[in-house]
Simulated assay, not measured.
Amino acid sequence: MEAEGGESPHEAFAIKLNRLFKSVRSETGEAYTPRAVSEALTQRGRKISPSYLYQLLKGESEPGYAVVEALAEFFDVPLDYFANSARGRELNTQYEVLAKLGDNNVRELAFRAQNLTPEGLRNVLRYMEFEEHRTKDDEHTSE
């Protein structure tokens, strides 16, 4: 059985779980590690080893419902996040954007944008649109 993007269900789950590790931050702002997630889940009465989490992240194992439920609860996402449904795809798109916001360059851009005037911010957005079109044009000419 294949997931929507052509990957196996193990790989599809791994992609979604990796996205959560990249987009959801701890209270200190740090990215979670499999060890930290394992320890937190164990404290909540849900024993999942770090090595099993690594297997899930690599797409080497398929989790049972209880594991999916525990991970959804830990990362504070609806169970639908892991589903291959319209709602699941919508949630994944949202978390993909959050993962990109975790990128240092994007965070710096957002941080610095708060000091711009409305006109300055419009200029930055126009420049970003220009770069986006230029990049797409470069990709088409190189094909």
Rank of each mutant, 00 (worst) to 15 (best):
P9W: 13
H10I: 00
H10Q: 15
H10A: 15
H10P: 00
E11Y: 02
E11Q: 15
E11K: 15
A12S: 15
I15D: 13
K16W: 00
L17D: 05
L17S: 08
L17Q: 07
R19Y: 07
F21T: 07
S23K: 07
V24C: 08
V24L: 07
V24G: 02
R25E: 14
R25Q: 14
S26Y: 00
S26P: 01
S26R: 14
S26K: 13
E27R: 12
E27K: 13
E27M: 03
T28E: 14
T28W: 04
T28L: 11
T28I: 01
T28H: 10
G29Q: 11
G29I: 04
G29F: 02
E30N: 10
A31Y: 04
Y32R: 03
Y32L: 00
T33Y: 00
T33I: 07
P34D: 12
P34M: 09
P34R: 09
P34K: 09
A36I: 09
A36Y: 09
A36M: 12
V37L: 01
E39A: 05
E39I: 00
A40T: 08
A40S: 14
L41I: 02
L41K: 04
T42H: 06
T42R: 10
Q43I: 00
R44H: 09
K47C: 06
I48F: 06
S49V: 07
S51H: 10
L53V: 02
Y54T: 10
K58G: 04
G59S: 09
G59T: 09
